[in-house]
Amino acid sequence: MKLKINGHSVEVTSDPDTPLLWVIRDELGMTGTKFGCGLAQCGACSVMLDGKVARSCVTPLSSVGAAEVTTIEAVEADPVGQRVVEKWIAHQVPQCGYCQSGQVVAATALLKENPKPSRDDIAAAMVNLCRCGTYNRISDAMLDLAGLGTAKDGETL
């Protein structure tokens, strides 16, 4: 099966029901996309399919079709993704970092769809779990990216 991923076209041999996550991690050897639950619960495995966020642990290889897969490894190749990464660093968002590939991908997908999201848009789109409790900084970084300023003075890092 052919897979379009991060600007390349590759031939993959996994079975059609294999979750895209494991095709990416095992067969293609890219480990930026994380395994947290395998059950669409956490979002650590988020990638983009044609620019839209998808959870790769519940995306069978066969349903990717001709869609362009973008993983965290290629996020910085996108100007929107680059801005997200910058702000993620500026706001010192990650802690353990394990959920953060997914968070950055989800943020990038939202901003590609809507460069000026409202607070509600952000809340609606940023639903990935973080066990380390980086939620406040994620919303601060998002508000900053959306041009809505940061939450309250002195509360970001």
């Binding site: 480990t31 930026g32 996020v75 990464v85 993620w88 660093i89 953060q100």
Partner: peptide, 10 residues
Amino acid sequence: RLDVPDKATG
């Protein structure tokens, strides 16, 4: 933090 850039980029 030194580890943040790598964690923000996978």
